[in-house]
């Protein structure tokens, strides 16, 4: 019924509280406006854990968090205190069951703390009238990553689960992350611990989103391209999950500035 994708840069919440943060505040607010207008009951949040919730002792390629609540952020998000976020546990369990029935095999998670990849989008999109969430993790950090077409199909399975849940709920789907972003790897900018190695790829992703070419986007998302686009460029896969769940919605808002590795996008019925 509505969908959105935004960046989850940990510095943005604090920036948005300062006078010079008007711009970033407004960019998120434009997306929040589309979601709010759809009057959702629940936000289904596609996310890529940054090796915080999960570790290499048991790394899930996909996971559905079906606890009663999660706490977060468990990492550093300046200006955002750690809090408890309610989860719609019954819907989450149904989405998990639907995914397994449709030949996806996510990890089932009944106890979790989440990081900035969940907390930052909610800080901006779920502030006015906090809604319960369903977090769905799509591995964007540790290769081999799930296939891009498979992520679209995962989203379709999630949409099927949303449709078949009783009682009928209004569920908006949200993704977060960047399309080109190097965190901590050799392609960082001089003097920084991050970089945007392939802004041209981010521009290409946004162009596909503008014209609804989701299958073409999935087809172009190759291993080599993601490796070049940065150490967390796999966050695009959580967007593909969201896009699969949002199939049939219309583009309502798209905000991309040349040179950036991310975008602010929203869809409505």
């Amino acid at each position: 019924m509505a969908a959105a994708g935004v960046p989850h840069t940990p510095a943005f919440p604090e920036l948005a509280n300062r006078p010079e943060g008007t711009d970033i505040r407004e960019r998120y607010a434009a997306v929040a406006h589309v979601l709010d207008a759809a009057r959702p009951d629940v936000l289904c949040v596609f996310t890529s854990d940054h090796i915080n919730t999960f570790f290499l002792d048991n790394w899930p390629n996909l996971a559905v968090i079906a606890a009663d609540e999660v706490s977060g952020p468990l990492d550093e998000v300046p200006g955002v205190a750690r809090t408890r976020i309610p989860v719609h546990a019954d819907l989450a369990a149904h989405l998990y069951e639907t995914c397994v029935r449709r030949d996806f095999d996510p990890a089932l998670v009944l106890d979790a703390a989440v990081d900035h990849s969940v907390v930052v989008p909610l800080h901006f999109l779920n502030a006015n009238r906090p809604l319960p969430i369903v977090p769905i993790h799509v591995n964007g950090m540790i290769a081999p990553l799930p296939g891009p077409r498979r992520c679209l199909q995962l989203g379709a399975a999630v949409a099927d689960g949303i449709r078949t849940f009783s009682p009928r709920l209004r569920v908006a789907v949200v993704a977060s992350g960047s399309f080109s972003l190097e965190v901590g790897g050799p392609a960082v900018h001089a003097g920084a611990t991050y970089g945007v190695p392939r802004p041209d790829w981010a521009a290409r992703v946004l162009s596909h989103l503008r014209y609804g070419r989701h299958a073409a986007l999935a087809a172009e998302t190759t291993p080599r391209l993601l490796a070049e686009a940065g150490t967390v460029a796999g966050e695009l896969l959580s967007w593909l999950g969201m896009l699969g769940a949002a199939e049939g919605l219309k583009l309502a808002h798209l905000d991309y500035r040349e040179g950036e590795g991310h975008g602010f996008v929203a869809w409505r019925e």
Partner: peptide
């Protein structure tokens, strides 16, 4: 952060993708 940036930029990317 500055040290980190300088040092990581001298590393070749694992997996063969180009560096900064």
């Amino acid at each position: 952060a500055d040290d980190y940036s300088r040092r990581i930029r001298t590393a070749g990317r694992r997996g063969g993708a180009p560096r900064a």
